[in-house]
């Protein structure tokens, strides 16, 4: 029987799943994903996780609880850095340790460190180590990685064309638009694991689509564009997400077709608290574009989210109606 590798459907899943899936399958293993996030995931996560952790980490815990008993290995890599001279949130770096020290009866963890801070070449080292958990055949590992990169590129290309990662990963492109008004382009900035997990964000994406909007995220912006924009800052941003969020937002500000910008942050996220403020200041200084910050936490009541989204879209449409009125008479 095939060895089963478990992948929690959380955090970097939304960024790298196609890469991981192909890689592990090429090594003749069966990839087992945890179920979609539900309130049970959050309940279990909150119970097993330290109280101070942020919501997405608690959700990650819930996903680990969901699959730990049905797999031979759990894939929880230690993400230190995924780009040159930048880090990811320290919680990712400590994730395998946090999990190991708080959850009992775990299968062995594949917890290889991924650290590309000094050089992208370290990726290969990490890959060989991850593959080493499953086979001794080094050539096979290299080939698996090559195939995995192809899957990843295919995934990334679709995103760059404007498809949301969650539409590719979850395969449910069936939201019915309920608005008869012109389509609006709304840029939503936030961590992938907040944007693309329908449970965490209270169906924000679907709600916005029903109101007749097209969603644009920083994942759709080409890396070179992001880097070019962010390079004008006087100092390098410490975090990979921070650079991408700021570079992406600056790009959105340059574009004429973006009707509004939403920043989705999770309460208690250190990175968000800095980056959100930087972005807000930059937006307010540069352009007269509708902007709102939405904060997520463990609330399950959706009224707060609905009111804010409603009012935000109302405000944009009202502005346009007003502009049109003026030009019609002027």
């Amino acid at each position: 029987m095939d060895v089963k590798v478990g992948i929690p459907r959380a955090l970097f899943y939304y960024q790298y799943y196609p890469l991981w899936k192909t890689f592990f399958e090429e090594l003749n293993t069966e990839v087992v994903l945890s179920d979609y996030t539900t309130s049970k995931t959050l309940d279990e996560g909150t119970k097993s996780c330290v109280a101070e952790a942020c919501l997405p980490v608690k959700i990650f815990y819930g996903h680990v609880m969901n699959i730990k008993d049905r797999v031979d290995y759990l894939f929880i890599p230690r993400f230190t850095s995924i780009s040159k001279k930048e880090y990811v949130c320290p919680k990712f770096g400590g994730l395998p340790d946090m999990i190991r020290n708080t959850i009992k009866d775990l299968p062995p963890l594949i917890d290889t460190e991924i650290n590309l801070r000094k050089s992208g070449k370290n990726a290969m080292k990490a890959i060989m180590e991850i593959g080493g958990f499953l086979t001794k055949d080094q050539r096979k590992i290299k080939n698996a990685y090559k195939k995995a990169l192809e899957s990843y590129r295919e995934f990334d290309e679709k995103i760059k064309q404007g498809v949301l990662p969650s539409d590719i990963l979850d395969r449910k492109l069936n939201v019915i638009r309920k608005s008869s008004e012109p389509e609006l382009n709304i840029a939503v900035i936030g961590h992938g694991y907040n944007l693309y997990d329908n449970y965490i964000n209270m169906d924000m994406i679907d709600k916005l689509r029903k109101k007749g909007t097209k969603i644009i995220t920083i994942d759709m912006v080409e890396e070179e564009v992001i880097r070019k924009n962010v390079s004008v800052l006087p100092k390098r941003i410490f975090w990979n997400f921070g650079s991408r969020a700021i570079g992406g937002s600056m790009h959105f500000l340059e574009r004429e077709d973006i009707d509004g910008i939403i920043y989705l942050m999770s309460f208690g996220c250190g990175v968000d608290s800095f980056i959100c403020d930087l972005i807000e200041r930059r937006i307010r200084r540069t352009k007269d574009i509708p902007f709102i910050i939405l904060t997520l936490d463990e609330h399950s009541g959706q009224a707060g989210m609905d009111t804010r989204l409603d009012a935000f879209i109302d405000m944009i449409r009202w502005r346009y109606r007003n502009d049109n009125n003026i030009s019609a008479h002027g």
Binding site: I293, W318, R319
Partner: peptide, 13 residues
């Protein structure tokens, strides 16, 4: 501004 809602904010969590 100009008689329309230009910006708003609500308390967070």
């Amino acid at each position: 501004k100009n008689g329309i809602i230009y910006d708003f904010a609500m308390n967070t969590v």
